[in-house]
Design a protein around this nucleic acid. Structure first.
Length: 422
RNA sequence: GGAGAGGUGGCCGAGCUGGUCGAAGGCAGCCGCCUGCUAAGCGGUUGUGGGAGUAAAAUCUCACCCAGGGUUCGAAUCCCUGCCUCUCCGCCA
């Protein structure tokens, strides 16, 4: 959520920035209209309220002197009636401005490349050499089937399409990756947390999934709750409605959770394999930082995610998303894409973003500077470190052997307790 | 699931037979005084958000005693609803 006051006072700048995202700026104009109406009505209401307060005080005083108060009471009654009518309208306008504001995306950082869609994203760096095969590399789903470690058919019997049943060393690989990644992350100062994976509406609004992206979420009807699409949601909301101390910042968290996504509108995309599932595990990195540090923190967070791939010796590249491809809440995003021999291309395995104060304002996460009055919103960041399912894909495809077996990356052997999957 | 108790400022804790209550008192914090160290003591001060205002302040004003409604001229105080916490019983991994 943007600051209403900021939008009011910097309309030109805001519109220009959001145009680069391909955002319909008519919504801003509409917001301003509602906001203006709201403010003038607020002024009116406050004037009446002041009048009412003064009258009440007078009544109280007169009563103590045992004087007659019928005329004052009558007057106050009228004033109260005026307040009531306007308050009702004010409530409607409050609601409208809030909704309007909640549906406006974040402003891209000046360092974000301008572009209309993913074709204009900019590659920042590459690491590792894609391996040269002396045989035709297989897709991970073929490898998984041959090894008997991935079972899509039975998963669809149990749950439906886009679910998977991992078995034997496949299940163990998944577990090994979770442990490996969490250990690497905690060694760098991220505190491990194990949050709820079902959350309430306020949390979803806090990080920006609601109200705009309800169709992406799995919901629970009776108590109105939501399955998380990423650990970003519960972990960022750890500090919702809190005022942090300056010296507590920055705060680093890492969490491994299942993630649930409807993938509505992605019919026909990645229909085979592990790439796009309704349920998958992901290790997440979350940071709370001071505004002046947040873009530095984004760089180090991205490096931390990259480090996992380097330790697993998987080739990847880092891409800066352009303005047109940026997520709703993000001011800047780096995608990390891992090389997949089965597809002969790089595929997203991590997405690292700085949300600046956009989520913090929604979730009301503030901090207080030493010796300064008032509070400021913190900046929130997060990134995958990494998506487990896609890491499994990358390992199976990059480490496959001619005989159909898969060599276990060195860094994982102590977790897997075997050197090859066969 | 059944039966009770409760949610007040950074913390503890009054108020809850409605009216100078943004809220007593204590602790903690800050500023000053005093005491040749430390402690004690004395005086003052210390919340958040919005709006108006200003070059910026000053200043004015509204709201906030878990959240949302209601009653009333007026609510921390009365009435509903929700959320959370605690105790007892039942059930359960």
């Amino acid at each position: 959520m943007l600051d209403a006051r900021f939008v009011r006072e910097n309309t030109e700048k805001v519109m220009k920035a959001l145009e680069q995202r391909g955002y319909e700026t008519g919504n801003i104009a509409e917001f301003l209209k509602i906001e203006d109406g709201r403010r003038s009505l607020l002024l009116e209401v406050e004037k009446y309220r002041q009048q009412r307060n003064e009258l009440s005080e007078r009544i109280s005083k007169l009563k103590r002197e045992c004087s007659d108060v019928t005329s004052e009471t009558q007057e106050a009654k009228n004033v109260s009636e005026s307040i009531k009518i306007r308050e009702e309208r004010l409530r409607e306008l409050d609601e409208k401005t809030k909704t309007s504001l909640l549906n406006i995306p974040n402003i891209p950082h000046e360092s974000v490349p301008v572009g209309k869609d993913e074709t204009e994203n900019v590659e920042i760096r590459r690491w590792g050499e894609p391996r040269k095969f002396d045989f035709e590399p297989m897709n991970h789903w073929d490898i998984g089937e041959i090894l008997g470690i991935i079972d899509f058919e039975r998963a669809s019997k149990i749950a439906g399409a886009r679910f998977v049943l991992m078995k034997g060393l496949g299940a163990r690989l998944e577990r090994a990756l979770m442990n490996f990644m969490l250990n690497v992350n905690t060694s760098k100062g991220y505190q491990e947390v194990l949050p709820p994976i079902i959350v309430n509406r306020e949390s979803m609004i806090g990080t920006g999934q609601l109200p705009k992206f309800a169709s992406e979420l799995f919901t629970i009807a009776d108590p109105e709750l939501y399955l998380i699409p990423t650990a970003e949601v519960p972990v960022t909301n750890i500090h919702r409605n809190e005022i942090l101390k300056e010296e507590e910042l920055p705060i680093y968290y890492t969490a491994c959770t299942p993630c649930f996504r409807r993938e509505a509108g992605s019919y026909g995309k990645d229909v085979r394999g592990l790439i796009r599932q309704h349920q998958f595990n992901k290790v997440e990195l979350v940071k709370f930082a001071k505004p002046e540090d947040s873009f530095e923190e984004l760089e180090s967070l991205t490096r931390d995610a990259e480090d996992i791939l380097q330790k697993l010796e998987l080739p990847y590249r880092v891409v800066a998303l352009c303005t047109g491809d940026l997520g709703f809440a993000a001011a800047k995003t780096y995608d990390i894409e891992v090389w997949l021999p089965g597809q002969q291309r790089y595929r997203e395995i991590s997405s690292c973003s700085n949300f600046t104060d956009f989520q913090a304002r929604r979730a009301n996460i503030r901090f207080k500077r030493e010796g300064k009055k008032g509070t400021e919103f913190v900046h929130t960041l997060n990134g995958s470190g990494l998506a487990i399912g896609r890491t499994v894909v990358a390992i199976l495809e990059n480490y496959q052997q001619k005989d159909g077996s898969v060599v276990v990356p060195k860094a994982l052997r102590k977790y897997m307790e075997v050197e090859t999957i066969k």
